[in-house]
Design a protein around this nucleic acid. Structure first.
Lengths: 339, 339
DNA sequence: CTGTTAGCGCATTCAG
DNA sequence: CTGAATGCGCTAACAG
């Protein structure tokens, strides 16, 4: 076994098997069209030489990259890992690579144009965007490969969307609280303009209407990001400006957990004094104290669906412009009737 | 990937600029060696044609892949996202792609050999292994590119390791508890044989020796995985088999939070009845109730260092066989003196 | 400093 | 069913 010398190439296999390189190539990609004798000779030669297909060469020849790029807002955020996991699952079934780019990484921050350099057909066969803050013009270039949006979406970007049923989520949360008897419900929303917050807000309002809360109390709005920290910070705001609220619906579990923490610091107990509902059902929410009532979102499934849609798009197969995946209310211990 | 008719190639740029393709190539890779006039002509032509370098072709020519593969045990686990983020940061500075493969993904599970297909020089220029359960033989093939291990490590695999100071972490945790007056300290360890648990165990024992606890009480061991669920399950074990313990050191924050949850279910309060120390300082630990005393591990920095080491390795530059990054004790509210 | 030329390793016509 | 020939788009010698 000579190691430092050439990695064996298709040519070496062909020579050893006594066939042409074309036949070897066929054995690798479509064995059925090769005679049994030739195929077996090639297979033997492959083993003997230790041949491995050079993926780069094949990609060049086939004018493809063999990889899909995922654009995530903050790779360090656990929220996305489940989605990536779903994406990775589908891609690896198709022998496609998953490329990950953190749109909040230091290379990109402050220079959104820099992202343009990555959005090229020579970098990836397709792109899955998980960051709703990016501008649609980034993806408008002719160089940009097909795009699918997942979870969040970008206004003005005409690319298939895979979303949770955010409206329904907001509605379910409010109805649950209303049924418990709450009348003053605050909504701790994500950043202004965020697509998720907007949809959930719509659901919240629908819930208010349906339960007749709108007439009794104006909705209370807080708004931050989706983070633990902002949830925590919202506690002070809630206590000083929205004293009458007996329940809070948060746009993420992280916010909810941060809020519970902040309230505890002020001596306010959940659910005894205030009820809290989250969104996402991150794994931690079941183990929080108190275990969090939340809206379950199938992030893994969203990831899978996004990858499947992108693959269809790349192949120019028809694909739905919007896919809405169902959500469910999970009642745990952070909600109860108001005192 | 169906390309449009003519993505402009280097040849088109050269023709428009009135220079040779070699000159265009030089402008792209090393502008300094080209005359100002030629360079500017090329730059103009690039803009005018909308030319983008074909990365695959360049990679083929340079016999490289332009990507690094990260092998993570469970992509859905938030623990790894920070590490990936650090890796991604360094790689993108170097214009390298980050490829992610979930070693627990359905494509690989049950068939560890399948991973071998990915461990090829044609798939990645290097590999960062974050999964200590993989067998060393996987990386022994001549086809496998350079490897670096981060966080966990594989016995018998001779590849540079980037680790947190796990021994010191275990020691700090025990000393902290001992200083508070605890004498019966349980260690909730990760899976048997896991490299992290072994090192931390060593630190725990050192702590026992230094504080003279060994003589008063045998160490208590529980063992599970690193997950919320296993921490939760350990609560029952602790209460039925290790009643005398007044403190628990857990090998991960997730375990610690799960344990606190499980204890709460049994009416045991932390830190009032039992003190708990975690490991990792995941973001959530500061917002848990009670906020968790833990050992801080700089995961982002570990990721960065791993990527830097791998790049050095690929370039055949010298690199340290082992890098140990410091840890710190963060005292929060889950520990206090025993009653 | 610049152009010419020869591949990188493979997949795919097109004949046979 | 098989083989010979032709690039995929680019970079790196090697001359000029």
């Amino acid at each position: 076994m000579t190691k430092d010398r050439h990695e064996p190439r298709i040519h070496d296999v062909a020579a050893l098997a006594g066939v042409s390189v074309a036949t070897v190539s066929r054995v690798m990609s479509n064995p059925a069209i090769v005679s049994k004798a030739a195929r077996e000779a090639v297979e033997r030669a492959i083993v003997e030489t230790g041949y491995r297909l050079n993926v780069t060469a094949r990609n060049l020849r086939q004018r493809q990259v063999g990889a899909v790029l995922a654009l995530v807002p903050r790779l360090a955020n656990p929220f996305f890992s489940q989605i990536l996991s779903g994406i990775a699952e589908v891609l690896s079934e198709r022998k496609l690579n998953l490329l990950v780019l953190d749109t909040d990484g230091p290379v990109l921050t402050g220079r959104p144009e820099a992202l343009g350099a990555w959005l090229t057909r020579s970098h990836a066969d397709g792109v899955i965007v998980l960051d709703g803050r990016l501008g649609p013009e980034l993806f408008a270039s002719v160089h940009c490969p097909p795009v699918v949006q997942a979870c969040e979406w970008i206004a003005g970007l005409d690319a298939p969307r895979i979303l949770a049923d955010n409206v329904e989520g907001g509605r379910l949360a409010v109805r649950h609280l209303a049924e418990l008897g709450h009348r003053y419900i605050a909504h701790l929303a994500g950043p202004a303009g965020n697509s998720l917050s907007i949809s959930r807000r719509k659901g919240v309002e629908r819930g208010f209407e349906e339960t007749g809360i709108a007439s009794e109390a104006a909705e209370l709005r807080l708004s931050g990001e989706f983070s633990l920290r902002s949830g925590n910070a919202a506690a002070a705001d809630l206590l000083s400006n929205h004293r009458q609220a007996t329940a809070v619906f948060c746009d993420s579990d992280e916010m909810a957990i941060g809020l519970v923490h902040g309230l505890a610091g002020a001596g306010i107990r959940v659910p005894h004094d205030i009820s809290v509902v989250g969104f996402d059902n991150i794994e931690m929410s079941a183990y929080a104290l108190p275990p969090l009532t939340t809206i379950r979102q199938h992030r893994h499934r969203i990831g899978r669906k996004a990858a499947e849609t992108l693959i269809a798009l790349v192949r120019q197969e028809p694909c739905a412009p919007e896919t809405i995946l169902p959500v469910e209310l999970l009642v745990r211990d952070s909600t109860r009737a108001p005192r």
